[in-house]
C-alpha cells in the first residue's frame, strides 16, 4: 500500500534534529579568533603541542579573558604545573579561577566496601590498569583518575564559563589510556551548557569527541637557534633574552573543526595563524 501524498511531505522525525551552531566566545587573541571564530561554548576543544610551543600561554590567556568577562573558570591541573605569577601577568582575576591541583596527596581513606557497587570511575582509569605498569605510569594513572572524577563533578555542577584540563605534562602512553567513553561522557555533559571545555595535551587524544583541534607549534626564534646549532646560517645570528622571550612567536594550526559542515574533516591544507607573546616582566 503506497504512502499517502500528504504523508510524503512530512519530514521524518529523525531528520528534524539539527545541531545548533554553538555560541562562540573570544579567546582574547585576535589572530586566533579570526582563524577559528573563537572558542565554542558547549563543546570540547583540544589544544595540543609540544613543550615550549606556547600552548600554556594560549590556555592561560583564554582563561584570563574569561575571568575578566566575569565568568567563573576552573583549571584541573594534572601535573600541578600552574604558575600563579604567569596567570596574574596574563591578567587573570584569581578570585574567579578554581584551581584543582591533582597530585600525590590522595586521601585513600575510602575503602572499597563489600556489598556495595564500586564506582569504577573513582580511583583509577577504568579497566585499563595493568599490573606491570611502570611506577611513573602508575603515578600518572592515579592523577588521571582524579582528573576524570573532578572534571565530572565540575561539569555536573554547571555555572562554569570555562573548564580547562591541563594534561600537558602527561606522557602520551598514559594519556592514551583515558578511555574514549570518558571523552564521550564529557562531550555529552558539556553539550547544551555555556561552558567551554578546553583540553591541553601533547597530542590529540579525544578523537571524534572534540569539536575543534588546534595544534600549537614552536616559535620561529627557536628554529633560528636550531639553525645556529646545526651550523646552517641562522636567521638571527645572536638573540638577546628580550628578543626571545618577549617576542615569542606562536603558530596555531586549525587541524580539525566539527563546528561547521565544511570543516568536519581535516582540511587538505591546514589554516594557520601566528602571533607574538610577551614576557611577564615586559609589563
Amino acid at each position: 500500500m503506497g504512502a499517502s501524498p500528504k504523508l510524503a511531505a512530512v519530514v521524518p522525525a529523525s531528520r528534524l534534529e539539527v545541531r545548533a551552531t554553538p555560541e562562540m566566545v573570544s579567546s582574547g587573541l585576535a589572530q586566533l579568533d579570526s582563524l577559528t571564530g573563537g572558542l565554542a561554548r558547549g563543546c570540547l576543544t583540544e589544544i595540543c603541542g609540544t613543550a615550549s610551543s606556547g600552548r600554556t600561554s594560549i590556555l592561560l590567556f583564554a582563561l584570563a579573558r574569561a575571568t575578566e568577562r566575569g565568568e567563573v573558570c576552573a583549571l584541573v591541573d594534572t601535573g600541578d604545573a600552574f604558575d600563579p605569577a604567569s596567570a596574574a601577568a596574563a591578567g587573570m582575576e584569581m578570585s574567579r579561577l578554581l584551581w584543582v591541583r591533582c597530585g600525590e596527596k590522595y586521601p585513600s581513606r575510602k575503602p572499597p566496601s563489600a556489598g556495595r557497587r564500586t564506582n569504577s570511575r573513582s580511583e583509577e582509569l577504568p579497566g585499563k590498569r595493568s599490573p606491570g605498569l611502570h611506577p611513573e605510569g602508575q603515578r600518572w594513572e592515579s592523577r588521571l583518575g582524579q582528573v576524570l572524577k573532578v572534571t565530572d563533578l565540575l561539569l555536573q555542577s554547571n555555572g562554569f564559563g570555562m573548564i580547562a584540563l591541563d594534561l600537558g605534562d602527561v606522557p602520551m602512553a598514559s594519556a592514551r589510556r583515558i578511555p574514549l567513553a570518558s571523552w564521550f561522557r564529557f562531550r555529552r555533559a558539556v553539550e547544551h551548557t555555556p561552558t567551554v571545555l578546553l583540553v591541553l595535551e601533547r597530542q590529540p587524544i579525544a578523537g571524534s569527541c572534540s569539536s575543534m583541534l588546534l595544534k600549537v607549534s614552536g616559535a620561529k626564534k627557536l628554529s633560528a637557534i636550531r639553525c645556529q646549532l646545526s651550523g646552517k646560517p641562522p636567521m638571527h645570528a645572536e638573540l638577546s633574552h628580550a628578543e626571545l622571550l618577549d617576542q615569542f612567536e606562536i603558530t596555531v594550526e586549525l587541524m580539525c573543526s566539527r563546528l561547521e559542515r565544511k570543516l568536519e574533516r581535516k582540511p587538505v591544507q591546514s589554516t594557520r595563524a601566528s602571533f607574538q607573546s610577551r614576557a611577564a616582566w615586559a609589563g
Binding site: 578554581l98 597530585g103 590522595y106 586521601p107 555542577s157 555555572g159
Partner: peptide
C-alpha cells in the same frame, strides 16, 4: 554571565577536596 549556584558549588568543592586532598582546591 553564568554563575555556579553557591549550594552546588560548595558541595562540588567538598567532593573535589575529598578526591585531591584538602588544601589542594581553591
Amino acid at each position: 554571565p553564568v554563575f555556579p549556584e553557591p549550594e552546588k558549588l560548595e558541595l562540588t568543592l567538598a567532593r573535589i577536596a575529598g578526591i585531591v586532598g584538602e588544601g589542594r582546591v581553591g
